[in-house]
Design a protein around this nucleic acid. Sequence first.
DNA 1: CGCTGCATTTCGCAT
DNA 2: ATGCGAAGTGCAGCG
Lengths: 231, 231
Amino acid sequence: MRLVIAKCSVDYAGRLSAHLPLATRLLMLKADGSLLVHSDGGSYKPLNWMSPPCTIAMSEPSDEQREFGITELWTVTQGKTADLLIVSIHEVLHDSAHELGVDPGLQKDGVEAHLQKLLAEQIELLGEGHRLVRREYMTAIGPVDILATDAAGRSVAVELKRRGDIDGVEQLTRYLELMNRDPRLAPVQGVFAAQEIKPQARTLAEDRGIRCLVLDYDAMRGIDNADERLF
Amino acid sequence: MRLVIAKCSVDYAGRLSAHLPLATRLLMLKADGSLLVHSDGGSYKPLNWMSPPCTIAMSEPSDEQREFGITELWTVTQGKTADLLIVSIHEVLHDSAHELGVDPGLQKDGVEAHLQKLLAEQIELLGEGHRLVRREYMTAIGPVDILATDAAGRSVAVELKRRGDIDGVEQLTRYLELMNRDPRLAPVQGVFAAQEIKPQARTLAEDRGIRCLVLDYDAMRGIDNADERLF
DNA sequence: CGCTGCATTTCGCAT
DNA sequence: ATGCGAAGTGCAGCG
């Protein structure tokens, strides 16, 4: 990895056109040829970048460009998408290269998969007498997160989200419509379960007879097993 | 901005738990206190990070940690969300600080806004005799991208996307349902316009009587004006 | 290999 | 502030 702090301007032409006026920024060149342009703020997202696979060409500026103060030109191209990124460097303030090696990668634990596993194990959170039929119940238009039965043995289809948005309600509605045509399943009750449900989503869901269930992830995890804490 | 290349392991506990095994990585400390952990590959997304506002505390390791080879500990916390990120540093290979100043920011030009402008100008792409009523036509549940009339003077509502997905069809469907209840507008014909329309979205749209229109951005831009090229 | 759904999404705009 | 839609989204899993 090569790290360059430089006064530069940047132009990008691809799916959109973008321009960065002259300022001091970090240019990060990764081993795979990709380039990231970072400022000293914002989030983790670079101001501009070029994703691999791409090739970078360093070149001398023309006389005209030199008159504008450009001392160095970096042209980054992506063969497939014809994207083009040009870094016009005016002054290099720092330049260092480092051998990092291959990263073993991130180990994740959590999110929707875990939530689904927990709810499957604690299926009575749906209501007394509920039983799990199966997770990822396959339908013609995709898998329903959880299929269960209520105390009376009627089908219950659960759509799980971390954040319950209107999209999730639409998705569940499509599933329910389809599943209710299946005489082996009908009538199917819908449950929209999430850690947090947006008011609009709740309104839409309840308007369609879909039950809303707010899940307490920490509590569910606490019931599950109190041993898997990180610290 | 402070740049540190270090052999380190990283633990994150927040909405999920994540762990990075010992390896050499770039630690980027931004002026706003945020921290990014980058490897020498992947995309523009860091392996791990902490978003601002957050505070970072450097501390000495305990004797036990020192035995494991840890020479320095960075603890990053976010007051509001109680997220916690811990960097266990084993060896510092590079450490430099740089004054970058405030970035003037990115100037964008393109994507959906431009596509909307172009289609408004070239409204006959919808069909002969079509006329623009207005862009961002406001309804109770949000703005319709384009409202037009066809040759016979009937209303046409256009939903624009760069990539035509099933979500866009659902969105347009909600608009149409609402607008068709308005006697001044009804009957309203729906047009789903995008640079690329997914087969599933097309099927759903056509099943609901919504017309699909694939737009050629480059051609539309070419007709519009051939002067605004960057290079 | 293409499609689908998730994301510690982030970002920007409008209410 | 808050909610909502878009992103040069990236990424992983699965058919």
